[in-house]
Design a protein around this nucleic acid. Structure first.
Lengths: 332, 332
DNA sequence: ATGAAAGCGCTAACAT
DNA sequence: ATGTTAGCGCTTTCAT
């Protein structure tokens, strides 16, 4: 069943059918005839033929490092509903933390396949910039800042700053479990937030109070152990993510520390984990789902307005959530 | 840059270029000429034109109820890597728990867009069967059994049976927090597993020992409360999912119950939550990621072998994981 | 082994 | 408001 047959059955030209499909000028009478035939036959236009002619795919490529993550799946959820609402389909490419795959997918989306790309990246190399520059479709960077591109990101600095400022009131020897500074957002910005908040509270963050973790609980537990060994009298541990905090919490409890009485602990991200640990984790809500929504909106803008579109940077609010893992917090 | 220009630059016909692209007969000499030109120009064939001609999209549609779920994101992760490895792209459609959307996406994928569909459904209505029947591309049902279709699912019955059998050894008054029986797998099968295991251990599951929950912690907490109010001397609570168990655990602790001493509690799914609660949850591992992988493999088979493909049902193994929330378990 | 030619199903410019 | 027409970029006979 194709447009020619529909045209024949409805007694019109195929151009008229096409106009009907693309809301052009069609008389009410023929509109009705066409509508009826399409309903009867269950005709659906071939999207590949449409794409071939019109260069519009209605696909948006979304590249993510992994899917099984609280923060990422929330962002994808926001993207997904916003795209669907605008008639787009989501082509989800998952790199499983392989940076090279990120480039492969970008190249795959290049010139082809998609009307736009949302890249939820973590680390940007020179190679990334090169491929990004060569991309002919609009792109939005999500969860990281990248100069020269429209991007949506959390206020990582302020999340860490606010959290640390709050804790500086109740802790005196404050340590930090962070991640690699190659990650500008979670790595660099959160560390900067912690550091500056301490400075502003007339405290410092000596190097031996800082440990670098991976993004998982095991690493959080291991680094908490290392930190405690080096600085036995530490009384507060701030973690770059809730997952790291959950791991650290697990270790500290197993080491016989009372949380928050002996050591208080906090994370960032307001993940579902933070409500389930005992004590529940003081953390910072980062509006991940809204970030996904906003990224999709920015992309629509770029797609619709082409060259005329204004590049935008959206930094989202954050909200401190005080729970049982810090002194003065309340257990769920 | 299109195939005609490449042909001209290489001094061959466009048919030869097409053959080069689709590994047909091309002399070594021309092969080399074409290869060089393609490399120089960075030419990439238009996928829409290829699709229009060859009817192959290299897209697989995946329909899921929500993305921010431990079990689902694991399955999607398995699907994603398997598809990518075979040169397919994943078109992810998320219904956000709107059953009607499921039908909308199936219709969208119908006749068009995709080479195959993986449906991670929950509830199958008559309307579902109708739309599924009308689908012209191969489909695999994931995480539910549906007669007449290739499907991949967990051994929900045995997971519940094994878990219950284990607990029947240490508990005497056993309650169950389940979900709607409209969900055949998580609803019906897990309940059946619990029931039959109790029978085989000469115990019963009276109606007042059963509560129906939604798939979230709040509901788990609320129903645990209701259950405890009705059956104050309950000593074991089995939950259909870890999330429900986490909610129930939270309530029971807040009600002053000691877990597992006063009441033992268990879930199913081996989610990351189960390792973080205190005590950590006894649960059953269900190989979600492998289920996703297997679903993709089954779909490949259907796509490649067309009418000749054999319909298959794959039921996956499960593994009991005993942790601190049950007597005899070990706290992480 | 290669080229010529037909056409996949659609949209958009043009003419009326 | 509608029809005619010319492709979009590719694959696939059919000749040679």
């Amino acid at each position: 069943m194709n447009i020619n047959e529909i045209a024949k059955l409805a007694g019109v030209s195929r151009a008229t059918v096409s106009r009907y499909l693309n809301n052009g000028y069609v008389s009410e009478e023929k509109k009705e005839r066409i509508r009826k035939i399409i309903e009867e036959t269950g005709y659906q236009p071939s999207s590949s033929a449409q794409t071939l002619r019109s260069k519009k795919t209605n696909f948006i490529g979304v590249i993510i490092p992994k899917i099984n993550s609280d923060s990422i799946s929330r962002m994808v959820s926001g993207i997904s509903s916003t795209l669907a609402g605008a008639g787009y389909q989501m082509l989800l490419a998952c790199t499983h933390n392989h940076e090279k795959e990120e480039l492969r997918f970008l190249n795959l989306f290049k010139e082809n396949h998609v009307d736009g790309v949302i890249l939820l990246g973590t680390i940007f190399t020179a190679e990334h910039r090169k491929v990004l520059k060569s991309l002919s479709v609009p792109i939005v960077i999500l969860s990281q800042y990248l100069s020269g591109y429209s991007c949506v990101y959390s206020d990582d600095y302020r999340a860490a700053y606010d959290l640390t400022s709050y804790l500086a009131g109740t802790g005196t020897r404050i340590g930090y479990l962070g991640v690699t500074e190659k990650d500008e957002a979670v790595g660099k910005e959160r560390l900067r937030g912690v550091r500056e908040a301490l400075q502003d509270n007339h405290q410092t963050l000596p190097d031996e109070y800082i440990r670098e973790c991976m993004f998982d609980m095991e690493s959080g537990a291991a680094q908490a152990k290392a930190l405690l060994a080096d600085v036995p009298d530490i009384d507060t541990v701030i973690c770059a993510t809730d997952t790291i905090a959950a791991g650290a919490l697990q270790f500290l409890k197993s080491a016989g520390k009372r949380v928050p009485e002996d050591i208080q602990i906090a994370g960032i991200g307001d993940s579902s984990l933070s409500r389930v640990t005992e004590p529940s984790l003081t953390t910072v809500h980062l509006y991940y789902e809204e970030a996904g929504t906003e990224a999709a909106r920015l992309l629509f803008d770029l797609i619709q307005n082409g060259e005329a579109a204004i590049q935008k940077e959206v930094k989202l609010d954050c909200k401190l959530i005080v729970q049982g893992s810090t002194r003065g917090g309340e257990q769920l």
